[in-house]
Amino acid sequence: MSQKVNTNEIMELIKDLVSIPSPSGNTEQVIRHVDEYFNKLGLETQRNHKGGLLVTLSGENNDRHRFLTAHVDTLGAMVKEIKSNGRLKLTMIGGFRWNHVEGEYCQIETAENKRFTGTILMHQTSVHVYKEAGDAKRDENNIEVRIDERVKSEQDVKELGISVGDFVSFEPRVEITESGFIKSRHLDDKASVALLMHVIKLLKEEGIKLPFTTHFLISNNEEIGYGGNSNIPSETEEYLAVDMGAIGDGQATDEFTVSICAKDSSGPYHLGLRKHLENLSKENHIEYKMDIYPFYGSDASAAIRAGYDLKHALIGPGIDASHAFERTHETSLLHTARLIYHYLKSNMNS
């Protein structure tokens, strides 16, 4: 199986995905990109009313179903106010810290689909002018967007077509290194979307019929809490969210293995399904780390909160510096792809 997983192909899929702006609430372009990929494989797709993308692979057993999800929406921002000096105040989309986007290039998309570039900066940026440049609080009052146009007033900005409520996306700055790393914004969770795309392609090429009918949801509202909590068929017994593994002090997760989550802020994941994933990893020589994410929630936990009667689990590649300048390694992608593949071919956990 490891010979079949092509990490170079996965990396290129990720590169394409992160290069398409898709903050939560504005994901049509990237959903269409994924849809076209599946259509080229000869797969039928459908959209839910929220704009997410569903793909179903029929199985030998159509009475018991599985459901997998990864989310294509990302962190971003929206224009909160046009300032009198021609700069923009922002409101966050998703949970990040303002210092993580300070100095970042960005793109403003208007309601008429015009796009303007800019830079996210502190108002008190110049040390030659502002004595408190290093100490001023990084917050929504001091952070602003410098638009790359000749604008000096609120009216100048409005004449460009920019208005309150326009989406602002962050430049990903994606790079693949010779040492096997991929670094970029928005690996959460476009790395996992690429993994599902690649594994589905492998199954299609091999002509494998899965033991159970399996649904794949490319969700588009996870960063704001409700991406994968709907459109789950009543026959579904197992729900596997594929999302990043968080790295930091006290965490077991690293950039070179697949992370299996035992518990996050929503509580423990289903013990039986978690053990099933752990046993599959051991049986197939998949390197994994069991971990707990204290400030984390997934589409699987959102489905449980919505009242679905499911066994839920969460796995994913280890992502360093989550919600900032993220990075992972090709070996983490490899082990995660292998676990997804073997899980899909395995018997239902009971």
Rank of each mutant, 00 (worst) to 15 (best):
K50Y: 12
L203C: 07
T117E: 12
N48R: 09
L88Q: 02
K152T: 11
W98L: 05
L17H: 10
G103S: 06
E222P: 01
E175A: 06
D63A: 05
E283C: 03
V242W: 00
V101A: 08
N220E: 11
Q3E: 09
C106P: 06
G316S: 13
G272K: 12
L217R: 00
N61Y: 14
H65V: 00
E205G: 09
I224N: 02
H276D: 07
R138A: 07
Q46R: 08
H270F: 09
D135G: 11
Q29A: 12
I143G: 02
A246R: 04
H186F: 06
V174E: 05
R338V: 10
G318N: 12
F67R: 04
N39P: 03
R305S: 08
M78S: 10
T214V: 06
S2C: 09
G207V: 11
I315A: 04
I200M: 04
K152G: 01
P21H: 10
G161F: 10
G297E: 11
D135M: 13
M290Q: 14
H186K: 11
K275N: 06
E81T: 15
G272S: 14
G227T: 04
E278A: 10
V101P: 05
H128V: 07
G103H: 13
I304R: 13
A252T: 14
T56K: 01
G307C: 12
A324N: 14
S22C: 14
D139G: 06
M197D: 01
A246H: 08
L90H: 05
A337K: 10
H285S: 15
G180F: 13
R146A: 01
I286G: 09
E12K: 15
K275I: 14
G118F: 09
I176N: 04
N85L: 12
I292W: 09
K80P: 01
N99A: 06
E140G: 09
T45C: 00
R66A: 01
S259D: 10
V129M: 15
A77K: 05
K131G: 15
I247M: 04
G118H: 13
S281W: 09
V242M: 01
I182Y: 03
L41D: 02
R87G: 00
